[in-house]
Structures are given as C-alpha cells and as structure tokens.
Simulated scan of single mutants.
Amino acid sequence: MNKRKIVIQGVEGCFHHLAVNAYYGEDVDIVPADSFAKLVELTQDESVCDGGIMAIENSIAGSILQNYGLLQDSGLVIEGEIFLRIKQNLMALPGQKIEDLREVHSHPMAINQCRTFFHDYPHIKMVEMEDTALSAKNIRENQLVGIGAIAGDYPAELYQLEIIAAEIESIKDNQTRFFLLKRKNEVVANGGYNKASLYFSTSHDPGSLSYILDCFAKENINLSKIQSLPIPGVNWEYFFHVDLEFQGPRQFRNALDTISHYAKEIKVLGTYNQGIIIT
C-alpha cells in the first residue's frame, strides 16, 4: 500500500511535520513547500499529494491572516483540525553561548512567540526566515558561527545543534491550530460533524453583522472565531471568516438557512469534528 503524501510548509522536523505525524501517524511521506501559497498550489494537484496541512493561528502570535485569504480562493476543503503544543528552543552549533550570538533566525510566528525572552539580549538581531526547522538546517549545513535558531526539539536532534535555552516561548501553554485540507471532490461526507468554518460578507445596513451573529446565538451555536479580511478591489468592505461549534449538523443547517437571507455571500470552507490538543 502506498504511503499517504501530505504537503507541509517547511522542511523535515518543522512543526507542520510534527502535526502530520500526530494526526496521521509516522507512516506518511511529507511533501515540503517553501511558502503557504506553494502549499495550497501543491495540495490542489492530485498527482502530487493526498492532502495538505496548514497552520492557521497561534495562541500567542494570533492568526496567520494570509492563510485565510489563500483558503477562500483555493477550492480546498477543511476536513479536520488539530492543536499542537508548541515548545520553542534557542539552538546553535555546539559549544556556543547566548553571548556569542549576533543573530537568531526563525519563522516570524516563532519569533513573535519568544520576544519576551530576547528583551534581555538586545545585542541579538532577530531575522525572519521561511521556517523554524529550515533555520536550524541552514546553520548546520553552512556551519554558521554566531547564529542561532528558534525551533522545536526535533530539529535540534535532526541537525545536531545544541539547545542553549529550552522552552523560551513567552506563554508556556503555547498552541498552534492546523487545518487538514483536501480537494473538494475527495472529501468523504461526514454526517456527525460538530464544527464548521465559513466566510460571508454583509451589506452596509446598520446592524447587519450583529443580526447574522444573533442568528447563530439563537441556534445555540458558539462563535469560537471571527476574523475580518478585506475584499480585494473593494475599499473598506470585508469578508468575515467564522468558526462555529454546535451539538449537531441540524443547528448549523438551520442557522445557515437563516443567515442566507441577510449575508451577501456565504461559502462553507469545511464541516468537521472539533480537534484534539497534542502535547
């Protein structure tokens, strides 16, 4: 039987890789992408993969706004979610101390998660890179002295770097939420879902957004996420991405029928079961 192929943003050892293993198990081939846009492009291609996994928000650094926009236009469907406990470490080539470092490289989200730690080290320049694990890999392959990386435990082991400071994230209960993505024609119908992601736009009539949100409340649906995104080419008008939690599909369908009379545009990005937290 062929291994499942899943597209990730980053290289071997990154948090996307860990999320894939946590959700699907370790008997999976990863397909690396150097950006989220490339992740979406590769996931759309059935000759490349069976699906993709994409980080969408972090409990410290917040939403990855570009990814909401990428999903809107992708034609991909959210089939699940997973929450991964994120532990960030400062690492470098063996034998170095934090006083020896001139720069620290990592993904911007990882840097944002660790800014409090670096307040005590103003001599260190923070440099944004495409990926946490790639930052570690780059140090090893190029023998970069005086350069550190922020990444998880696995990249330190994989690329033989020494952890100078462990678990440097500002808040220890640091979690990243990932969406599991599939092509629309390959999603298996799920009759027992209890969560949904969708987006819509509204008119400029006073109270139009609050009326739509009230429709969800009347169906006893929990609004666990709301994110506004500009509508391209239309100044000062917005899409609203929402995540909804409910007891069963009927509540969701009833609310969807009601808001369809008041929202200008509605697109369901996926219905799925609430994800678990992997520590």
Rank of each mutant, 00 (worst) to 15 (best):
I6C: 04
R250S: 05
T132V: 05
A189L: 00
Q96G: 07
H17G: 08
R140I: 01
I53K: 00
C49V: 04
I276M: 06
Y262T: 13
E12S: 14
I231W: 01
E245I: 09
S208F: 03
V20S: 10
V127T: 09
F252M: 14
Y272T: 03
N112Q: 10
Y24W: 13
V7I: 08
G270M: 00
I221K: 07
R102E: 15
Y199T: 05
K267N: 08
S135Y: 03
T202A: 09
N194E: 06
R85N: 08
I124E: 08
N235M: 05
L65K: 14
Q44G: 13
N67E: 01
S201T: 13
H17A: 12
F179E: 07
R4W: 12
N138E: 09
H123T: 03
V188A: 15
Y211K: 14
L39V: 05
D257P: 08
I212M: 03
G146D: 10
E167Y: 02
K3P: 15
I78R: 10
I6R: 10
E103H: 10
D205K: 13
L18V: 14
P232Y: 06
I60G: 00
Y272S: 02
I86V: 15
E130Q: 10
F15K: 11
Q113M: 15
S228T: 13
G152D: 01
I212H: 08
S224H: 05
C49W: 06
L144H: 10
Y159W: 03
P32C: 06
N2Q: 07
S47C: 06
L42S: 03
D173F: 07
W236D: 15
Y68M: 09
P94I: 10
A37Q: 13
I212T: 02
H123E: 11
E12D: 09
N67G: 03
E130M: 09
M129P: 01
R115H: 05
I164S: 02
A217Y: 14
N220Y: 06
V48A: 01
A133Q: 01
C49M: 12
A149F: 01
E41W: 07
V268W: 00
F117Y: 10
I226E: 07
I277V: 14
P32D: 11
A151R: 07
L101E: 09
Y121T: 04
T176D: 05
D120Q: 14
F178E: 11
T176R: 00
G148W: 00
C215K: 11
M91L: 12
H105L: 12
G75M: 04
A166N: 15
L161E: 13
G75L: 12
S210Q: 04
K137Y: 02
S35K: 07
I56P: 01
G191Y: 12
R250N: 02
L42V: 09
G270I: 09
T43C: 04
D205M: 08
I212E: 01
H241E: 09
R102K: 15
I259F: 07
L71I: 08
R85W: 00
D257N: 14
L209Q: 01
D214T: 15
E157A: 10
A151E: 04
I147M: 11
E141M: 02
I171F: 14
